[in-house]
Design a protein around this nucleic acid. Structure first.
Lengths: 148, 148
DNA sequence: ATAATTGCAAACAATTTGCATTCAG
DNA sequence: CTGAATGCAAATTGTTTGCAATTAT
């Protein structure tokens, strides 16, 4: 089972939308496909991808579709620190590490935060969300270049 | 020893600046004082604070002073996710937790990340910087309101 | 004098809003 | 028809840049 969504999921989605008087428009589908096809893409990048197929889609529509898809739990966004947030498919739950030297984004399993999550809950009752913010630092490649 | 900087530190700072042909101007001192007086303040907030004393200081100068003070290692900035980054005095090294519900910012000792730092270094050679990005989640207060 | 610093206006990037038009049920 | 959705232009926010005027040494 990949990102594409099974036929059953498609159906469930349509139902959810219909209950709220909303529709799965071509634009929204294009945005969802773009997010699923790209890895941690900014709204701008999603827009470019969508416009390869349908150049008439406006970036305003991209923003509105991303908001809706996020509300529906189909995509999520992560702040990498600088600039625009990046969107990814909800199925891809990852911890993001961003190198402040080269900008590289490294994905790691969220399980790495299990202990920290427990510690924070005990210490101050804070429920950690592993995916909404990235972690910042220096990647291995930049560190080795630094040694030279 | 608080944030204010001892007489010796002031002197060392002046020397460092002088070596690079730079000066500790009234504006820069005001910005440094503002950052030290406020907790995790945005450039906008620093500007307002400075302008309480000296209304003629332009926000461009605030940005430039913050950059310089950061380069000198006197202040640091942290991205809380949404909106503008926040600046704090370098002496205050903290892990920032930001509640995505109410926006509250909670400070915790960076020691909580010790194990994660080790794990990331071993796993993928990534050197974690505990302060540059905040952690996101839901604070205890919002969680208890949710229960009701 | 000379180089650093500032203020101001304008440019810029990312995002949001208002509104008229279009479209599906 | 009616509300939802879109596209477009304009407004907003956060930040940077170009440049002329000012200031300290």
């Amino acid at each position: 089972v990949g990102d594409e969504g099974t036929a059953g999921e498609q159906l469930a989605l349509r139902r959810t939308l219909h209950e709220r008087g909303l529709r799965m428009t071509p634009q929204r589908q294009l945005v969802l496909d773009a997010v699923r096809g790209l890895r941690h893409a900014t709204p701008e990048q999603v827009c470019q991808r969508v416009q390869q197929t349908t150049p008439t889609v406006n970036i305003t529509t991209i923003y509105r579709a991303l908001d809706l898809l996020e509300e529906l739990g189909l995509v999520r966004h992560t702040h990498l620190g600088h600039g625009a947030p990046v969107y990814s498919a909800e199925a891809h739950e990852h911890l993001h590490l961003v190198c402040h030297r080269c900008g590289r984004v490294i994905e790691q399993p969220t399980g790495l935060l299990a202990r920290l999550t427990d510690d924070l809950r005990e210490r101050c009752g804070f429920r950690l969300d592993a995916t909404h913010l990235a972690l910042s630092g220096t990647c291995g490649q930049c560190l080795s270049e630094e040694d030279v």
